[in-house]
């Protein structure tokens, strides 16, 4: 793809974030390619999702299981409403992967309301985006928390 439009990419990331804010996992999942994946490492600078533990590393199959679990009436941890507010900044187009996906990085702050508690998550995201006409799909989303090694509390939603 020639001359990727940063404005367009930003709009795409904002749309993705707003689907998580609601949260609408059904629509959110559709943004991913069939071979898409979501990764939240458990270590700073982690290079490997298979030979090192992660908080989350899921493909479309696991995303679909999570989506079904999320709306299941018999999941005690999901009886609490969860609402998020994503703020993205410092969005930068980095380079392209070997397969031609655009690599886009950004900073995020997410405020999450869950179980009568307001929490803050912060870090950086890396998206690998496949250009499809005027739109994009996510081949890979990596979420690096600023405190991946810290003791984390229960969280039932993707960031």
């Amino acid at each position: 793809m020639s001359n990727p439009d940063l404005k367009q990419i930003e709009q795409f990331l904002y749309r993705e974030a707003s689907l998580l804010d609601q949260p609408d996992l059904d629509q959110w999942m559709q943004l991913f390619t069939e071979d898409g994946s979501y990764w939240m490492p458990a270590m700073e600078g982690q290079s490997d999702p298979l030979n090192h533990i992660s908080h989350i590393y899921e493909d479309r199959v696991m995303m679909e299981i999570r989506r079904r679990n999320f709306v299941h009436p018999r999941s005690a941890s999901k009886e609490w409403p969860v609402r998020c507010s994503h703020l993205l900044g410092n969005i930068q187009l980095q380079n392209q992967t070997d397969s031609g996906d655009l690599v886009v990085t950004c900073n995020f702050h997410v405020i999450v309301w869950y179980r009568e508690e307001q929490r803050v998550y912060a870090g950086t995201c890396e998206h690998h985006l496949l250009a499809e006409g005027d739109d994009y799909r996510i081949r890979h989303k990596r979420v690096d928390l600023i405190n991946p090694e810290a003791a984390q509390r229960s969280m039932v939603i993707y960031l």
């Binding site: 941890s77 984390q152 229960s154 039932v156």
Partner: peptide
């Protein structure tokens, strides 16, 4: 990751 992560689908229901 599946069973013991705080971001998983099993641990949070136990907790």
């Amino acid at each position: 990751r599946l069973i013991n992560s705080s971001f998983g689908m099993v641990g949070p229901d136990d907790h």
